[in-house]
Design a protein around this nucleic acid. Structure first.
Lengths: 229, 229
DNA sequence: CGAGCGATTGAAAAGACTCAACCACCGTGG
DNA sequence: CCACGGTGGTTGAGTCTTTTCAATCGCTCG
């Protein structure tokens, strides 16, 4: 179960150490990191930061999931990314002097640590491996978004949903995908009703199965095939 | 008129010096840059690099325009960006060890210089301002693409075309927009026929005017309004 | 128990795409 | 000089996808 207190999480045990940009850190640096960070417990649907506000630091997810989204014209959310345990959220904003272009908000209860902008930039300055990791990460996200844009522009909604389910299956590794239909629709980029109908189709085709709102992928191959079309 | 020879272009006079990432360079560095680069004349529709190939360096546009695109499933191009004089193309790939995810190809006759990967990375290592500029550039492009994705996912084709025309008007600053209907459709993310019909609508509404294939924007305000809807 | 949100369904309308045909321009070779 | 072929631009008709609007259902929370 989740620890709901604000107690300090030690970086040494944190998943982020293994998976994230901080993986290059040696023991000394982890101790440093541990010293400058602060930890907080977030309830479901609590924002980490808001579009338009000024970045003050980065967020490191110890547990829980976070959606990152922009708002289109009529305020409709477009979910750009779903971050999971071990990921660092908001580091792109550290290098531009601009306000956030996106909002980040928890999808479930989460324990999230915060590292101050100056502390973070200090780490970046003193650790070449970290800096290279960040440049590589920025570049590869840029490349990812090319795929994302191409998908949005060229695939049918059915294809996009298949693609989204593949991504989400990996993000929810092991667990079932657990999103409101509206969030899922906002990730795929479609209307909620359309999304529900397509999920129904997938169910009837035996590709997925639902447990309440939760979605289980039964046939990844078929999803790949549909996504490709 | 364009100089069609392969003669050396001096960085001192190049637009890229003023506008691009290299703007932070002091005179000495410009001399260095000038020494390591090579120049080439490109005909229309000639590729700078191909999706899947290994990056060997960056391209600096002295004159001309370049489209950067990915290919969707059935090979359909999705144009991600149209680069103009002064821009540096392909620098994202310098920081990941992966093959290009996109193809770059000239839209018109161009004079383009090439800087070797190791020379470029050397410059990045020795010039902190350049490095910071690059990180900022990567971050802000990432932010741009969020808008791009949201547009693709939520706007109608009409809205996307309006948005594209606004962007292209800036890129073709002063000149008329000059793209094949197919390229424009691949930028907007639609079928060529749909694109042509929408252009016709815009013409009838007095928002644009065509001169052969070239497009002149008459009413930017209306485009903004349509794009916003 | 009632309010309210999220999930679901139906029906109709709008938006885009596909296919097929035709036009217009341009450079080539005879 | 002119017919030819090819590419890019345009139009029409029909179809499919997706959205929109309206209504219903189920569940949880106070």
């Amino acid at each position: 179960m989740l620890d709901k207190s604000h107690k300090h999480i030690t970086c040494e045990n944190c998943l982020a150490k293994k998976n994230s940009l901080f993986k290059s850190f040696c023991d000394d640096q982890v101790v440093d990191l541990n010293a400058v960070k602060t930890c907080a417990y977030y309830k479901k649907n609590q924002p980490l930061f808001l579009e338009g506000s000024l970045p003050r630091g980065v967020f490191c997810l110890n547990s829980g999931k976070v959606k990152v989204f922009a708002r289109g014209e009529e305020g409709k959310e477009q979910i750009i990314h779903v971050a999971k345990e071990g990921e660092i959220v908001g580091f792109r904003a550290m290098f531009s002097e601009e306000p956030y272009k996106v909002t980040a908000s928890t999808l479930e209860e989460s324990n999230i640590c915060f590292i101050n902008k100056s502390d973070f930039l200090n780490l970046v300055d003193t650790n070449i491996t970290l800096r290279n990791g960040i440049m590589k990460e920025l570049s590869s996200e840029l490349a990812n978004r090319v795929t994302y844009i191409t998908n949005m522009a060229q695939k049918s909604v059915r294809g996009r949903l298949a693609f989204a389910l593949i991504l989400l299956e990996e993000i929810y590794a092991g667990e079932l995908i657990n999103l409101t239909r509206e969030d899922l629709a906002n990730f795929v980029g479609t209307a909620t009703e359309t999304l529900i109908r397509l999920l129904k189709d997938f169910k009837e085709e035996g590709i997925i199965q639902t447990h309440g709102r939760k979605i289980e992928v039964l046939n990844r191959e078929d999803l790949l095939k549909i996504s490709g079309a």
